[in-house]
Design a protein around this nucleic acid. Structure first.
Length: 871
RNA sequence: GGAGAAUUAGCUCAGCUGGUUCAGAGCACCUGCCUUACAAGCAGGGGGUCACUGGUUCGAACCCAGUAUUCUCCACCA
């Protein structure tokens, strides 16, 4: 027989994933069992697997596998998001490479290309998740633009419109000049940018005087509608009622007064550009100013700018600055840092722009969604996010839901030739509606805009079960609301809040009970992993190198919920080593020959201990899972297997070299082995399945797989047995320590005498002899002269080392220990003699202090006697 | 500018309502071992005035206040 010395994951991974699929273990259909449901946060179709997905989906898979083993009907629904702006940008770029301009295509032709692109690349990320071992029900895979999901979106739009939540209006929006679409506030990322602050002179009409304003955007002076000063500003009283001339274009604009202007900033004079700044827009409304929009949709200047028409705004900025300088209108230029908005998807600098858009009113919708979280009906994990959720929900603004794109669900609004509009699901219904309103119903056309992607993702937990269109269907009634949602805190508002809003509006229920918010995967230096930094390892390569189980363990080892994960490949190494450890434990057991002779006492004692210890660990693990402390659950499993099972239990029962093991003992070992494999399975699915099927554990039916094996249940355990064995472990460690510090080889057996007053070690006799390599173990009632001694609890142990013993060193060691114990005793005494302590502390605390005192006193007595006996 | 969080061993983190163990784990480190499951291993070991300063308390890593540093989220200062 030859089994590889190290675990080779490759073969096992392909084999078992295939096998699980073929046997339908990932499938879920409603039945009598309790459901356990997770909907996967749908990755963008444009996405490729990155470390964030790895973390996210590993967590989900651990949760779903554990639930499945616990006998629940586990259903994990995968899918992808159409990600309208990101995908459209990708497709546009691809077409450009082929020499095709989007503008030259009809909407239909463009969409044909987009769907082709989606079919070709959209599934990549899901394929990659298979490698991770994701046990999703792939037959339920959904896409946010599947016909039924799209219809759900349209239905929801109409429902919300009828309920008065959706309106159309001209507002200032965040305009993405690259995507050429409006964005919601949440899609704008603010970054601090080093800019220039230009001080520009505006000549006062019919005068040689100037006012100087400070701006970061000189290219917008052509859109200026006024200059604004604070009416309380002493310096500018003389300007009231005057007008000034905009440089270069020589247009006359008024000087207005508003306390909005900060006197301290810049020169205290503000140029008001209503078309290109939200605050200026509001000022303009208040003071009835003209709105001059000088920008095209792509961020270039239009003819209203008069000069530099067709130039991009950033180029225009530089050119204008130069021109102003040439005509002497620039007073000075300062360096200046300020926050600029960028498109989350295209990274283009956002332009505030006035435009007609569709909006979703949020205040009313937000309230119940906030209550779910505040009442605890929806639990955020960790709950520190509740505060920011609350803040956001209480300050939420209306949501711009229209996008000037083609890829997405087209808004079901219809216009007649007079530009009047109605909301209707189909053209026929629209015509009816127009007619019933007595309006012209000929030549009607549909709204060009599509809906924000998040409008459809908000429905995801419902729409994957077709719960929007058909709430009475069996799947929806069975699986909804789902149990856990695992996602990144960055999309708490984007997505989680909106799912709760939409879920509430349809079902009066939140779509999930727990929201586990993962951290951000960072590199060792704490930098966010990103493609542009090139600091993100390729997950697929990692899995090739360390094995999928190793990487899963690595991801989980140091990622408590909500904490960022400082990722380093050494975690994967640790995971791989752990897999290898289990593999080798298996090799050991696999290699044993058996005998029919009955089991001796020692392995039975060991089994008794391990069983109790195992049950204790299972209880701890359960507790960790209840609190979503996955890394702690994993660490408890890790230590149970590595320390308790391998280092202690297997060493205890391991037969002597080339000796057989009793059949009875082997059966017990195999039984435990399968139990620890079951515990490990959610974390390490492949290795555990591979070992599960080895003939060592007997013939198995085709469906007898660990993926559906029962997860160890909580059982009682005897703490005394665990404590007692801890003393045994201590004795063994102390003997090893003595050996180590005296440079005695582990091969040399030593004599050991124990003066047991507390614990009856007789049933552990053989275990101690074996693991501490004891030549002769005796139980004594008196001091053993000329021996190295140590305490295990209050039991003193002696190793007679004959002439090898250094009496002086022994004396010194014991003296130090007594000294320490006495110091300890003093502090305990101090507590106990403090009346206020005895009066105020809980009785069990006081009792405990008394025990500590008694224990220390007993130890001091023993050690003092030992010291005396040394002479 | 507002809000929240963090600061515990070289690193990453536990420490659940203040009091079982003079502060724990994993990794890393040091020493000795290629012992016939595993050197991706075995045995043993060292290492922290719990950021700082005060306060509350019989008792503080834990509660309170302030300081420092770091992070995250939100926000329209040109």
């Amino acid at each position: 027989m030859s089994i590889a010395k190290t675990y080779n994951p490759k073969e096992a991974e392909d084999k078992w994933y295939q096998y699980w699929m073929e046997n339908g273990f990932f499938r879920s259909t409603p039945d009598a069992r309790e459901p356990y449901t997770i909907v996967m946060p749908p990755p963008n179709v444009t996405g490729v697997l990155h470390m964030g997905h790895m973390l996210n989906n590993t967590i989900q898979d651990v949760l779903i596998r554990r639930a499945r083993m616990q006998g629940k009907n586990a259903c994990w629904v995968p899918g992808t998001d159409h990600a309208s702006i990101a995908t459209e940008a990708k497709v546009v770029a691809m077409l450009k490479e082929q020499g095709i301009d989007k503008k030259s295509l009809t909407r239909e032709d463009f969409l044909k290309h987009a769907w082709e692109w989606k079919e070709k690349y959209g599934g990549i990320i899901l394929k990659q998740l298979e490698k991770l071992g994701a046990s999703c029900d792939w037959e339920r895979t959904k896409f946010t633009m599947d016909a039924d999901l799209s219809e759900s979106v349209i239905d929801t739009f109409i429902k919300f419109y009828k309920a008065g939540y959706i309106y159309r209006g001209v507002r200032m929006v965040n305009w993405d000049p690259q995507g050429k679409t409006a964005l919601s506030d949440e899609e704008v990322i603010r970054k601090e940018v080093q800019q220039k602050l230009y001080y520009i002179r505006y000549q006062i009409k019919d005068s040689d005087e100037y006012v100087i304003i400070a701006t970061t955007r000189p290219e917008t002076i052509m859109a200026d509608a006024a200059i604004c000063i604070n009416p309380n500003d002493e310096r500018y009283q003389h300007l009231k009622g005057k007008t000034v001339i905009v440089p270069l274009v020589n247009r006359e604009i008024p000087i207005i007064e508003d306390t909005y202007v900060e006197m301290e900033f810049g020169t205290g004079c503000l140029k008001v550009t209503p078309a290109h700044d939200l605050n200026d827009y509001e000022l303009g409304q208040k003071h009835n100013l003209e709105v001059i929009d000088i920008l095209n949709d792509d961020g270039t200047l239009n003819e209203k700018a008069i000069i530099l028409v067709g130039e991009d705004r950033f180029i225009a900025r530089k050119k204008i600055a130069k021109q102003l300088e040439e005509v002497g209108q620039i007073e000075k230029i300062e360096d200046y840092k300020s926050q600029i908005g960028f498109s989350e998807r295209t990274d283009a600098a956002i332009e505030p722009k006035l435009s007609m858009q569709w909006w979703c009113k949020m205040d009313e919708l937000a309230k119940p969604a906030l209550d779910y979280v505040l009442s605890g009906e929806v639990r955020l994990i960790p709950d520190k996010f509740t505060a920011s959720y609350k803040h956001w929900m209480e300050n939420v603004k209306d949501w711009c839901i229209s996008r000037q794109l083609w890829w997405g669900q087209r808004i079901p609004a219809w216009y007649n030739e007079k530009n009047e509009w109605v909301i209707a699901k189909t053209q026929e219904e629209a015509i009816q509606e127009f007619k019933s309103q007595g309006k012209p119903a000929e030549r009607i056309r549909q709204e060009e805009d599509v809906l924000d992607t998040w409008f459809s993702s908000g429905l995801w937990p419902m729409s994957v079960f077709d719960g929007v269109r058909n709430p009475e269907n069996e799947d929806f009634k069975y699986y909804y609301p789902t149990n856990d949602l695992v996602t990144a805190p960055e999309i708490l508002f984007f997505w989680v809040a909106r799912m709760i809003i939409m879920g509430h509006n349809y079902t009066e229920k939140a779509p999930f009970k727990n929201v586990y918010l993962t951290g951000i995967v960072r590199d060792k230096l704490g930098r966010k992993m990103s493609k542009s930094l090139g600091n993100s390892p390729d997950p697929i390569e990692l899995m090739e190198q360390y094995g999928t189980d190793g990487v899963r363990v690595g991801m989980l080892l140091s990622s408590p919920a909500g904490n960022d994960l400082m990722f380093d490949v050494s975690y994967c190494e640790q995971g791989r080593n752990f897999a290898n450890k289990i593999w080798n434990a298996f090799r050991l057991v696999k290699g044993w020959e058996t005998t029919d002779s009955p089991a001796t006492a020692a392995p039975k004692t060991a089994a008794q201990w391990f069983e109790n210890r195992f049950n204790q660990a299972v209880a701890e693990i359960d507790e960790h899972f209840k609190h979503y402390r996955l890394s702690d659950a994993l660490m408890t499993t890790y230590k149970l297997i590595w320390d308790d099972f391998c280092a202690w239990y297997l060493e205890l029962v391991k037969p002597a070299y080339q000796m057989p093991i009793e059949q009875e003992t082997l059966e017990t070992v195999k039984n435990f082995f399968q139990k620890i494999l079951s515990l490990a399975h959610p974390f390490m699915p492949f290795l555990t399945e591979e070992l599960w099927h080895d003939e060592l554990f007997g013939q198995r039916d085709a469906k007898d797989c660990i993926i559906v094996a029962p997860y160890p249940e909580i059982a009682g355990f005897n703490e005394n047995i665990i404590k007692e064995f801890a003393s045994v472990q201590q004795i063994i460690s102390e003997v090893r320590n003595v050996r180590n510090s005296k440079g005695i080889s582990p091969k040399i057996a030593l004599p050991l005498a124990i003066n047991a007053t507390e614990i009856d070690y007789s049933k552990y006799q053989d275990s101690i002899i074996k693991l501490a390599n004891i030549e002769e173990l005796t139980f004594v009632k008196d001091k053993v002269a000329g021996a190295v001694s140590f305490l295990a609890g209050r039991d003193e142990c002696y190793i007679a080392l004959a002439n090898n013993i250094d009496i002086d060193a022994e004396r010194e060691r014991i003296r130090k220990e007594i000294e320490y114990l006495q110091g300890f005793l003093v502090s305990v005494d101090k507590k106990l003699s403090n009346e206020r302590f005895v009066a105020n502390a809980k009785p069990e605390i006081v009792e405990n202090e008394q025990n500590k005192k008694a224990d220390a006193e007993a130890k001091i007595k023993i050690l003092t006697e030992s010291l005396a006996s040394l002479g």
